[in-house]
Amino acid sequence: NQASVVANQLIPISTALTLVMMRSEVVTPVGIPAEDIPRLVSMTVNRAVPLGTTLMPDMVKGYA
């Protein structure tokens, strides 16, 4: 089972991601792979991401 990136807090729309905002967790459905966390830092989300939500590729500008 692959770990995915999960929001560690509410991430408001257009917020630049930082390490403290994300954690890795094995979830269903599978989202962005946890090993991509370093790549996600400073990318922005294009929607509000509630606490505990799995980050999907279409939620992060420039990721997909």
Results as ranks from 00 to 15, higher is better:
residue 46 N to E: 10
residue 18 T to I: 06
residue 54 T to F: 03
residue 33 P to C: 06
residue 53 T to N: 10
residue 9 Q to P: 00
residue 48 A to S: 14
residue 53 T to P: 00
residue 39 R to N: 12
residue 53 T to G: 13
residue 11 I to N: 01
residue 30 V to C: 07
residue 41 V to M: 06
residue 41 V to F: 04
residue 29 P to W: 04
residue 1 N to S: 14
residue 26 V to G: 04
residue 26 V to Y: 12
residue 43 M to N: 05
residue 49 V to D: 02
residue 10 L to E: 15
residue 57 P to S: 09
residue 55 L to N: 01
residue 47 R to Q: 14
residue 34 A to P: 06
residue 6 V to P: 01
residue 16 A to F: 09
residue 61 K to R: 15
residue 10 L to R: 11
residue 22 M to V: 06
residue 53 T to S: 13
residue 64 A to S: 10
residue 8 N to A: 15
residue 41 V to Q: 05
residue 12 P to C: 05
residue 26 V to P: 08
residue 61 K to P: 13
residue 8 N to Q: 09
residue 57 P to G: 14
residue 7 A to L: 03
residue 14 S to D: 14
residue 23 R to H: 05
residue 7 A to G: 03
residue 29 P to A: 04
residue 1 N to V: 13
residue 40 L to Q: 01
residue 3 A to G: 14
residue 31 G to A: 02
residue 28 T to P: 00
residue 48 A to Q: 14
residue 48 A to G: 11
residue 52 G to L: 04
residue 49 V to H: 02
residue 30 V to P: 09
residue 4 S to M: 01
residue 41 V to N: 03
residue 47 R to N: 08
residue 3 A to T: 08
residue 11 I to L: 06
residue 17 L to G: 00
residue 19 L to Y: 12
residue 49 V to Y: 02
residue 62 G to C: 06
residue 20 V to S: 09
residue 7 A to S: 14
residue 64 A to R: 04
residue 22 M to A: 00
residue 16 A to W: 06
residue 12 P to Y: 05
residue 6 V to K: 02
residue 54 T to V: 11
residue 26 V to F: 08
residue 53 T to A: 11
residue 59 M to W: 12
residue 50 P to I: 05
residue 23 R to Y: 05
residue 13 I to Q: 14
residue 61 K to N: 15
residue 39 R to I: 11
residue 24 S to W: 07
residue 45 V to R: 00
residue 1 N to R: 10
residue 62 G to D: 14
residue 38 P to K: 10
residue 47 R to S: 10
residue 30 V to L: 13
residue 58 D to N: 13
residue 9 Q to D: 07
residue 35 E to N: 11
residue 3 A to M: 14
residue 3 A to S: 09
residue 7 A to N: 01
residue 54 T to I: 11
residue 37 I to F: 02
residue 26 V to A: 11
residue 56 M to P: 02
residue 21 M to Y: 05
residue 53 T to V: 13
residue 23 R to G: 08
residue 37 I to E: 00
residue 62 G to T: 06
residue 45 V to C: 05
residue 44 T to F: 14
residue 50 P to G: 09
residue 35 E to K: 13
residue 36 D to L: 11
residue 40 L to Y: 02
residue 5 V to D: 03
residue 29 P to E: 06
residue 40 L to S: 00
residue 15 T to E: 08
residue 63 Y to M: 04
residue 8 N to K: 08
residue 18 T to C: 05
residue 53 T to C: 07
residue 13 I to S: 12
residue 55 L to I: 12
residue 46 N to A: 07
residue 12 P to G: 08
residue 50 P to T: 12
residue 57 P to T: 06
residue 8 N to F: 04
residue 25 E to L: 12
residue 39 R to A: 11
residue 42 S to G: 15
residue 60 V to N: 01
residue 33 P to L: 09
residue 44 T to L: 11
residue 43 M to D: 02
residue 38 P to I: 10
residue 29 P to N: 05
residue 61 K to V: 15
residue 61 K to H: 15
residue 24 S to Y: 06
residue 30 V to R: 15
residue 23 R to I: 06
residue 20 V to F: 13
residue 19 L to C: 06
residue 33 P to Q: 06
residue 8 N to S: 13
residue 10 L to I: 10
residue 56 M to F: 14
residue 9 Q to T: 10
residue 36 D to Y: 14
residue 19 L to N: 08
residue 64 A to D: 11
residue 3 A to W: 09
residue 50 P to E: 10
residue 2 Q to G: 13
residue 55 L to S: 02
residue 29 P to L: 04
residue 62 G to K: 06
residue 3 A to Q: 11
residue 5 V to P: 03
residue 2 Q to N: 10
residue 55 L to Y: 01
residue 13 I to F: 11
residue 28 T to A: 13
residue 36 D to M: 14
residue 26 V to T: 10
residue 6 V to I: 12
residue 56 M to I: 08
residue 12 P to H: 08
residue 36 D to Q: 13
residue 63 Y to K: 03
residue 56 M to A: 06
residue 40 L to H: 00
residue 58 D to W: 13
residue 49 V to F: 03
residue 47 R to D: 07
residue 19 L to W: 10
residue 56 M to W: 05
residue 58 D to P: 08
residue 13 I to Y: 10
residue 38 P to V: 13
residue 20 V to E: 15
residue 18 T to R: 08
residue 34 A to N: 05
residue 49 V to K: 00
residue 26 V to D: 08
residue 10 L to M: 14
residue 20 V to Q: 15
residue 33 P to T: 08
residue 59 M to I: 05
residue 37 I to R: 06
residue 43 M to E: 04
residue 49 V to A: 04
residue 47 R to A: 09
residue 42 S to C: 05
residue 32 I to G: 01
residue 18 T to W: 03
residue 51 L to T: 14
residue 13 I to A: 15
residue 50 P to V: 06
residue 3 A to E: 09
residue 22 M to H: 01
residue 59 M to T: 07
residue 39 R to C: 07
residue 58 D to C: 07
residue 35 E to F: 13
residue 62 G to Y: 10
residue 42 S to T: 11
